[in-house]
C-alpha cells in the first residue's frame, strides 16, 4: 500500500465531469431533437405562418426571442431535469455521493454543460434568423436575461427531478414543455389565447422570459414588473431544486 489515498485536485475532476456531462447531453438522439431540431423547426415553420398581423414587423422579430426561450426550456427543464432524474434512478448520483467528487464540482459541471449547449443553441438560432429570416437585433444586452432564464428553467427541471420519480419527471417535464409552447408567447402571441388565460400565461416563466427577451433584443426597455416576477420565479425554483435534491 502506498501513501494516503487522496482526492484529485478539483479542477481535474471538474474538467472530466464537465466533459462527461456534455457528452451525455449531446449523445442521446432525443436530446438533440428537443434541444436543436425542435427550436429551429419552430422558427422555420412559424416564420411563414399567417398568424402575425401585417405591418407588425418581421415574424422573426417575434419568433427569435420565442425560440430562444424554447431552446432554454429544452435544455434546462426537459433535458437536464429528465437526465438528472434518471441518473438518480440508475443510482449514478448515489455512487457519485460515495466518491471523492465534491458536490459543488458536480453542480458546476452540470451547469457548465447546460450553458455550453445553450450558447450553441442561441448562436445557431441567431445565425439562421439572420441568414434566412432577415432578423437583426441587440444580442449583448439580452445575455443577462438568458442567464436568468437558464437558471429559472434548470431550477424547474431539477425541482421536478427532485420531487418526482424518473418516469413522472419524464412525463411532467414533457407535459409542461408542450403547455409552455402554447401559453409561453413563444411562437403564438399571448393575445391569441382566450381572454381568461392571458393574465395567467403572462405570469408564468416562459412568457416572462420570451417577452423580456423580445424587448431586450429589440433594444427597448424591459418592463420592471416582468423582470421582477421572473427573478422571483428563479429564486423560488432554484431554491426548491436545492431543497428537494436527493442523491438516491
Amino acid at each position: 500500500m502506498s501513501g494516503p489515498q487522496l482526492a484529485a485536485p478539483w479542477p481535474r475532476s471538474l474538467r472530466a465531469q464537465l466533459r462527461v456531462e456534455l457528452l451525455l447531453l449531446l449523445r442521446q438522439p432525443e436530446n438533440l431533437l428537443v434541444m436543436l431540431v425542435l427550436p429551429v423547426l419552430l422558427l422555420a415553420l412559424f416564420a411563414g405562418a399567417r398568424i402575425f398581423p401585417a405591418g407588425a414587423g418581421r415574424p422573426a422579430e417575434f419568433l427569435i426571442p420565442g425560440v430562444i426561450t424554447v431552446a432554454i426550456m429544452s435544455t434546462g427543464m426537459v433535458t437536464l431535469g429528465i437526465s438528472t432524474a434518471y441518473q438518480r434512478y440508475y443510482r449514478v448520483l448515489k455512487r457519485l455521493g460515495g466518491s471523492p467528487l465534491p458536490r459543488f464540482v458536480l453542480v458546476a459541471a452540470k451547469a457548465g454543460a447546460v450553458l455550453l449547449v445553450e450558447v450553441g443553441q442561441v448562436a445557431l438560432l441567431l445565425v439562421i434568423g439572420r441568414l434566412f429570416f432577415g432578423w437583426s437585433g441587440e444580442v449583448l444586452g439580452a445575455i443577462p436575461l438568458m442567464l436568468l432564464g437558464s437558471v429559472c428553467f434548470a431550477g424547474l427541471g431539477l425541482t421536478l427531478a427532485g420531487a418526482l420519480r424518473a418516469e413522472l419527471t419524464l412525463g411532467g417535464a414533457n407535459g409542461l414543455y408542450l403547455l409552455f409552447l402554447v401559453v409561453g408567447g413563444v411562437v403564438l402571441p399571448i393575445d391569441h389565447l382566450p381572454g381568461w388565460l392571458q393574465p395567467v400565461a403572462m405570469a408564468l416563466p416562459p412568457a416572462l422570459l420570451s417577452s423580456s427577451l423580445r424587448a431586450a433584443l429589440g433594444s427597448t426597455a424591459v418592463a420592471g414588473s416582468t423582470l421582477i416576477l421572473l427573478a422571483v420565479w428563479t429564486v423560488v425554483l432554484a431554491g426548491a431544486a436545492s431543497l428537494l435534491f436527493r442523491w438516491e
Binding site: A7, Y90, K94, G98
Partner: peptide
Amino acid sequence: PQLGIMLQEGGVY
C-alpha cells in the same frame, strides 16, 4: 477517497 464502493446494482451512467 480511501474507500472503494460497489453498490448492489447500477451506479454508472
